[in-house]
């Protein structure tokens, strides 16, 4: 495979939850390999459902999703399961809002979770990882600039550091796609920028397709090549961030833009402080010591 990323296609995909709630309605999307896509919308609009269908965490009710050469189909058809489903998931990394680290174990053990699919059961059981896997995990930690914390407990890290460990965990999978579900919702504004920049850098340098859910419009516009707006489970906008003007936002949010919807204007009084912090952080990151937040 030439490109390191995989393309993603949604063909008329719908999701109805067992309780009758409709998560997605007839979604058609085509995301080429190596693109960085931001998905915006109100909570409940189907953002989480959308990214979770891509790795099969949420099974689709009808339609078809293809991720690289893997196919996910609706209920009733031959659904991807067992080892085939796990193979797809091993090619798709996922970053979560609440980091989802095993907090009582070390950072390196958390990153090595990205190698679980490829490791034989006995190695997993004994924690006897292959040297290659440890090397891969270490270089993933180096990429998010947090390698010096490798043997510390995950619980001792700050939120931003934990999220970068989570990104390293996905990198250890050698993924073709990274999904990020509200990756900065639990972080403060300066740290949010650091994490978003990490994702952007990974996308640019490694060519991995990145799909990221974001609540904040300014972050989405700033860090993604393409913006997808969801409302009530349907795509209401799809295009470059620059095209997303006031009226587009109104169609996504059903109301005009408020300070709640942008990161760096919230709360208004703190804006200046936050921006200053960000500038300093920029400098720190550029010196390559960004992990000492």
């Amino acid at each position: 495979m030439d490109s390191t990323g995989a393309d993603i296609r949604f063909d008329d995909v719908s999701v109805t939850y067992p309780n009758g709630f409709t998560g997605l309605k007839g979604i058609n999307l085509s995301i080429p390999a190596g693109e960085m896509v931001g998905i915006v919308g109100l909570s409940g609009a189907g953002k989480s459902t959308l990214v979770r269908t891509i790795n099969g965490l949420v099974p689709i009710t009808s339609g078809r999703i293809s991720v690289g050469n893997h196919q996910l189909t609706g209920r009733g058809e031959a659904q991807l399961r067992g080892r085939d489903l796990r193979e797809l998931r091993s090619n798709v990394g996922m970053v979560f809002q609440s980091f989802n680290l095993a907090r009582r174990t070390t950072v390196i053990n958390n990153v090595l979770m990205g190698r679980l699919y490829h490791s034989p059961a006995w190695r997993t059981l004994l924690g006897a990882w292959k040297n290659d896997d440890v090397e891969l995990a270490m270089s993933a930690l180096e990429r998010v600039e947090i390698v010096q914390k490798a043997y510390e407990k995950a619980s001792s890290l700050s939120g931003g550091q934990q999220q970068r460990v989570a990104i390293a965990r996905t990198l250890a999978q050698r993924p073709k796609v990274i999904l990020a579900d509200e990756p900065v919702a639990s972080l403060d504004p300066p740290t949010s920028h650091v994490v978003m920049r990490d994702l952007q850098r990974i996308n640019a340098e490694l060519g991995i397709t990145v799909v990221v859910n974001l609540h904040f419009l300014d972050l989405a516009r700033r860090y993604s090549d393409r913006l997808i707006g969801l409302r009530s489970g349907e795509v209401v906008f799809d295009g470059p961030g620059a095209d997303a003007d006031e009226s587009v936002f109104e169609s996504i949010y059903g109301r005009s833009l408020t300070a709640e919807d942008v990161l760096d204007a919230k709360p208004v009084l703190d804006t200046e402080v936050d921006l200053n912090a960000e500038v300093e952080l920029d400098a720190v990151v550029k010196r390559g010591a960004g992990s000492e937040l």
Binding site: N55, N91, V92, M94, F96, L101, M113, L116, T170
Partner: peptide, 9 residues
């Protein structure tokens, strides 16, 4: 963390 591990295959 379990969800993350399952999501990693």
């Amino acid at each position: 963390a379990l969800e993350a591990a399952l999501a990693a295959g």
